[in-house]
């Protein structure tokens, strides 16, 4: 890990303008101070709702105060057609710093990249990157191969349409998969472009433990990309074969979230 960057004239001279954010919360019945609050960050196009389906309540049932934020332009947050990755990371840090205690940040898909940027600004208790999309041209190549017509417009500043076969495993019932796919919106064109440019996130502050979770059968994130992200944070990915990209919505949603919470209970070792 190299040193930190102190000079942030851009953040000082033109701070990210405020935006109204959607925050969903599930509170455990018995408050447990030994367990840190967990903040879930959805990927591009998804909102906090994606976590509200299963993961939020499940984390709360295991004693974790669980929160899910929709970055601006997502879910029920304020529309933000010109938002940048910086603005999304700002939203995450704002919510994290507003929690009563030092939080764990969990990001999924491109939300994992947003979390990685947020980790460079906020000393989280721990970071979890689930099926992380860190971008780059290889990501675009794979997406084009899998879903040419959904992806092509996004490469030219249009909307990215993800197919349900890209996001979910075969065992998720068809109507449910269709319903989820319909609820997915899209990130701003600028953020999509920034994802392609794939500026590497800075190193985390406060040296938090970071866990990478994924599935070898992901049709958005190739296995090599998973390994690469995990290696950057000094580990190997924790794998859940047979699942689709949207780990928190797929039929077997419970396995990854239990693994994440187990890891947190053990202190993120």
């Amino acid at each position: 890990m190299s040193s930190v960057r102190i000079m942030r004239t851009r953040d000082w001279a033109s701070p990210v303008p405020p935006a109204r954010r959607e925050l969903l919360t599930a509170t455990p019945e018995v408050a447990d101070d030994t367990r840190p609050p967990v903040l879930f960050v959805p990927g591009f196009g998804h909102g906090a709702w994606a976590y509200a389906e299963h993961w939020l309540e499940h984390a709360a049932s295991r004693g974790f105060a669980a929160h899910a934020v929709s970055p601006r332009g997502h879910g029920s947050s304020e529309p933000a057609p010109k938002a940048t990755l910086r603005a999304y990371a700002h939203d995450v840090v704002q919510v994290a710093a507003g929690l009563p205690r030092q939080a764990v940040l969990v990001g999924h898909g491109a939300g994992a990249l947003v979390v990685a940027h947020a980790l460079a600004r906020y000393p989280a208790r721990a970071g979890v990157l689930a099926a992380p999309v860190f971008g780059g041209w290889a990501t675009l190549g794979l997406a084009l191969r899998r879903n040419l017509f959904g992806t092509l417009p996004a490469a030219f500043g249009g909307r990215l349409r993800l197919g349900r076969r890209q996001l979910f495993g075969r065992d998720l019932p068809e109507p449910l998969a269709r319903d989820y796919t319909r609820r997915i919106g899209h990130a701003s064109a600028r953020a999509q472009w920034e994802l392609l440019r794939a500026r590497a996130p800075e190193n985390p502050v406060g040296d938090p433990p970071v866990l990478v979770v994924g599935t070898p059968d992901d049709r958005v994130v190739p296995r090599s990309a998973l390994d690469k992200v995990a290696r950057r944070y000094g580990g190997a990915p924790l794998l859940f074969p047979g699942m689709g990209h949207d780990l928190m919505l797929d039929t077997r949603w419970q396995e990854p979230v239990d693994a994440i919470l187990d890891w947190l209970e053990k202190g993120g070792e």
């Binding site: 700002h90 840090v93 704002q94 507003g98 600004r121 906020y122």
Partner: peptide, 11 residues
């Protein structure tokens, strides 16, 4: 931006 701790932004 000049007043807050860089890792704990004000609301």
């Amino acid at each position: 931006p000049f007043t807050q701790f860089p890792d704990f932004p004000m609301p």
